[in-house]
Amino acid sequence: MEEIQHESNLKESHKVLLTYIRSVCVLDQETLCRRFAKILRRLEPETLNNDTEIEDQSEAIVGMLEQYIASINNNIQDDGFKINKIRHQVSGAMLYVYVNTWVDEIAKTNSDFSANQISSLKSLIDDIVGSGENLEYSVSIVDAQQRIATETNKGIREASIELSWLLDQHWFNSTSERRVILSPRLLSELRPYLVDRYGISTNDSDGSLLQCFQCTDILTIGQKCPQTTCPVAFHSKCLNVYRRSAISEGQCPNYSNCGCTLFSGQEQEENYLTRVGVPEGTVLD
């Protein structure tokens, strides 16, 4: 595990929290808050109301968690690490991701990667992003194994083990339909690399990546304007926010360029958007 020079400046409770997040790499806010509350109960019991159930202190715990993470980030940023936040593309749940911020090349993400592993990682990302031309943003597990086998000069069985390791390390996720997709960790940690290599699709640019209009995160699962050349897309949860907004009126926010209506009916119940990525019900957490 990487050494963090400035970790010694943290209090014990901060160190325990950092160690936990670093060990699991990616976790949702609800899970992290439960673990954080246990840490506080053990190391800083005075910070919690012992007469109230933890569930009834959730808002206060989230607030304290944000303060602790801000303090941790202030101490580890000079060592090239950070605890990032990103929304789950399907559920909309807040995720916390431990990332390397010095990633201007994938080779710097993990010193344990061999040259062949880095090559296979890059190529697999290329394949997944390349499938975005058809709005798929996924490849089959069989194709992913074949890609890794080609890049690493290994057999399919060894490539299968390699892919399983990448999935276990949260670089990719799999679906119930045996598809491989970009993970929250990859989208968060490698965002600079992704944007630089593939570009974001806009009215003025033909980038290969879509960006959610509402939250501005990279989007590989969601819905987009039915006009092929229009870059507007939404995560499903973000789409609901936009639908309820006073500015939507059922029209695409890029209406002046595309002329598209996204919803119709008094309650905007009819949806004309095009699906992006794998079916949401197939995504495995």
Rank of each mutant, 00 (worst) to 15 (best):
V139R: 13
I118Q: 15
V90K: 07
D104N: 15
V90F: 11
A107C: 12
K108M: 13
S111A: 12
I118M: 10
L121R: 02
D104G: 08
A149C: 00
S119G: 08
E151A: 11
E151C: 14
N110A: 14
A93R: 15
N110R: 13
A144C: 01
L124K: 10
Y98E: 06
F113P: 00
Y98D: 03
V129I: 14
N116H: 11
V103P: 03
S140A: 01
N110D: 15
L135P: 04
D126G: 01
Y137D: 06
V103T: 11
T150M: 07
S120M: 10
S123P: 06
D143K: 08
Y137R: 03
Y98K: 05
N134V: 04
E151V: 02
V97C: 09
L95F: 05
D143A: 12
N116P: 06
L121Q: 05
L121F: 14
G92M: 03
L95T: 02
N134W: 13
A93C: 05
L124Y: 09
V139G: 05
N134S: 14
L135F: 10
V97A: 01
K154H: 01
V139P: 01
V99F: 01
V139A: 02
A115E: 08
N134L: 12
S119E: 14
E105Y: 09
W102M: 09
M94R: 14
N134C: 10
G132M: 06
L121H: 03
L135E: 11
S111H: 10
I106G: 00
A115V: 09
G130A: 05
E133K: 14
E151T: 02
S120W: 02
E133C: 10
D143T: 13
I106S: 11
Y137A: 06
Q145W: 00
G92L: 02
S138L: 08
F113D: 11
I106Q: 03
E105D: 14
Q89P: 04
Y137S: 01
W102L: 08
M94I: 13
Q117E: 15
